[in-house]
């Protein structure tokens, strides 16, 4: 099997998961008054669940563009680490344009299946995964946006937790394996609740709450519990 087809095979379950999650993103966007096609455009140009979700919150709250830029930067900073890790797996002679193109598909899940490929990573593997996962993400948004307005309220209510379910699925297994990650998760949830319930702190907009909590908790834990030297082959 060539690497492109191998990428497609790896991308299919990702595309299915994306469809379900971006479906709820489409619903949320349309609920906030955004056209289904515009919601699909957001998905096509961003391809990131957490970032889009936070971005939508800022759009609906009419936040500033600075707040948007800073929020996207902080929330998506993890992609830098992933890109960095993938850059170590690439053939040094790889033409630069491959790096520009691969970067577009650097999501948690595509990174996940790419990072475990043998070195050097063939760009076509990522392209295969992107070729199915990205359409799944965009179509899910569109269908969710279109169906959201005709779906009964009780179904929308149930689908409202889909995105959070996915976040939980991403953070819990590592938290189980690493007490430091567990501490990060608990501290972040606690701090985020403080911002939600305490007077004064309550007035901070939700985009900035995510930034502040992330920087404070990740910074604190990086200081208290720095990660071990990483194995040479990641």
């Amino acid at each position: 099997m060539n690497t492109f087809r191998k990428g497609i095979a790896g991308g299919i379950p990702i595309a299915l998961g994306y469809f379900a999650v971006s479906f709820s993103f489409g619903i949320l966007a349309v609920k906030g008054g955004i056209h289904p096609l515009t919601a699909a455009l957001i998905s096509l140009t961003n391809v990131t669940s957490a970032g889009q979700f936070a971005g939508l919150t800022i759009i609906l709250a009419s936040g500033s563009l600075w707040e948007m830029a800073l929020t996207q930067f902080i929330i998506n900073l993890r992609y830098s680490l992933m890109s960095l890790s993938i850059s170590q797996k690439l053939d040094a002679k790889l033409p630069l344009w491959h790096r520009f193109l691969m970067a577009f598909g650097m999501t948690d899940e595509i990174f996940g299946i790419s990072a475990v490929q043998k070195n050097p990573l063939a760009p076509s593997f990522m392209y295969g995964a992107m070729a199915v996962a990205i359409p799944g993400w965009v179509l899910g948004t569109l269908v969710g946006g279109l169906a959201g307005s005709v779906l009964p309220a009780f179904l929308l209510s149930a689908l409202g937790v889909a995105l959070y379910g996915m976040f939980i699925a991403i953070i819990i297994p590592p938290a189980k394996a690493d007490p430091a990650v567990l501490a990060v998760v608990l501290l972040s949830m606690g701090l985020s609740c403080l911002f939600y319930f305490l007077p004064l702190l309550k007035q901070v907009s939700s985009g900035f709450v995510i930034i502040i909590v992330t920087v404070v908790v990740a910074g604190l834990m990086a200081w208290l519990k720095p990660v071990e030297e990483e194995p040479s082959d990641v």
Binding site: A50, F53, A54, I74, I75, L77, R78, S80, L81, D108, Y164, F167, I168, I170, I171, P174, A175, A180, V181, V184, V185, L186, L187, S188, M189, L191, S192, C193, Y196, F197, V209, I210, V213, T214, V217, A218, M221, A222, V227
Partner: peptide, 15 residues
């Protein structure tokens, strides 16, 4: 950078 995704996703999920 290692802790960022967990902190951010946890903060977005709860409450």
């Amino acid at each position: 950078l290692y802790y960022v995704p967990y902190a951010c996703l946890a903060a977005m999920t709860v409450p």
